[in-house]
Simulated assay, not measured.
Amino acid sequence: MALSSIFGGAAPSQQQTAPASTAKAVNVKEQLKTQIAQELAVANASELVNKVTENCFEKCLTSPYSSGEEGCVDQCLAKYMRSWNVVSKAYVARIQQASTSGEI
């Protein structure tokens, strides 16, 4: 029995497993971050579709469908997509800034 094990030190074989388990924990953490990011992207896309449907179709479509309503839907959709892109870019920039400053 070595003196290091008496005084609380780990055996050399135990010291080698610690970095491997740390690397595994980091890998799991990165996989979880990736999965969460993917789920957020799907949720954001679903939210966009729901808002477009709710706002544009209710605004533009009337009971009997007419050809003039198609232009209204197209313009409304384009406006929502532009707005969505602006908000998404600002959100990503804030997340990246918080990540680099250590807030996240």
Score class of each variant (00 low, 15 high):
2 A>Q: 14
3 L>M: 14
3 L>Q: 06
3 L>V: 12
3 L>I: 07
4 S>T: 13
4 S>K: 14
5 S>D: 04
5 S>A: 14
5 S>R: 08
6 I>R: 05
7 F>E: 05
9 G>D: 15
9 G>K: 03
10 A>W: 10
11 A>I: 11
11 A>P: 09
14 Q>W: 07
14 Q>C: 14
14 Q>P: 15
15 Q>V: 12
15 Q>I: 10
16 Q>H: 06
16 Q>M: 11
17 T>I: 15
17 T>Y: 04
19 P>N: 13
20 A>D: 12
22 T>N: 13
22 T>H: 05
25 A>H: 01
26 V>G: 09
26 V>K: 03
27 N>V: 10
28 V>W: 14
28 V>E: 02
28 V>C: 03
29 K>M: 11
30 E>C: 03
33 K>L: 12
33 K>T: 07
34 T>R: 03
35 Q>L: 04
35 Q>C: 12
37 A>M: 09
38 Q>P: 13
38 Q>S: 11
38 Q>H: 05
39 E>M: 10
40 L>G: 12
42 V>S: 09
42 V>M: 11
42 V>G: 07
43 A>V: 14
45 A>T: 15
45 A>E: 12
45 A>P: 13
46 S>P: 13
46 S>G: 14
48 L>Q: 03
48 L>D: 00
49 V>R: 07
50 N>P: 06
51 K>R: 10
52 V>T: 03
53 T>L: 12
55 N>F: 08
55 N>C: 02
57 F>L: 03
58 E>W: 15
58 E>K: 11
59 K>I: 04
59 K>H: 13
60 C>N: 12
60 C>Y: 05
61 L>E: 01
61 L>F: 00
61 L>D: 01
61 L>W: 00
62 T>S: 01
63 S>W: 13
63 S>N: 15
64 P>W: 03
65 Y>L: 12
65 Y>D: 13
66 S>Y: 08
67 S>D: 05
67 S>H: 05
67 S>E: 09
67 S>V: 03
68 G>Y: 07
69 E>I: 00
69 E>Q: 00
69 E>M: 00
69 E>V: 01
72 C>P: 08
72 C>W: 06
73 V>I: 05
74 D>S: 02
75 Q>L: 02
75 Q>S: 09
76 C>S: 10
76 C>I: 02
77 L>G: 02
77 L>Y: 00
78 A>R: 00
78 A>M: 11
78 A>G: 10
78 A>Y: 05
80 Y>P: 08
80 Y>F: 15
81 M>H: 02
81 M>W: 04
81 M>A: 15
81 M>D: 10
83 S>M: 11
84 W>G: 06
86 V>I: 02
87 V>P: 05
87 V>E: 12
88 S>V: 14
88 S>G: 14
89 K>D: 06
90 A>Y: 06
90 A>W: 14
90 A>P: 03
91 Y>K: 03
93 A>V: 09
93 A>R: 10
93 A>N: 10
94 R>L: 15
95 I>G: 00
95 I>S: 00
95 I>V: 03
96 Q>G: 13
96 Q>D: 11
96 Q>H: 06
96 Q>I: 08
97 Q>G: 08
98 A>W: 05
98 A>E: 07
98 A>P: 07
98 A>H: 11
98 A>D: 06
99 S>A: 09
99 S>L: 12
99 S>R: 07
99 S>D: 13
100 T>G: 01
100 T>V: 05
100 T>K: 02
100 T>N: 08
101 S>C: 03
101 S>N: 02
102 G>F: 04
103 E>G: 13
104 I>T: 04
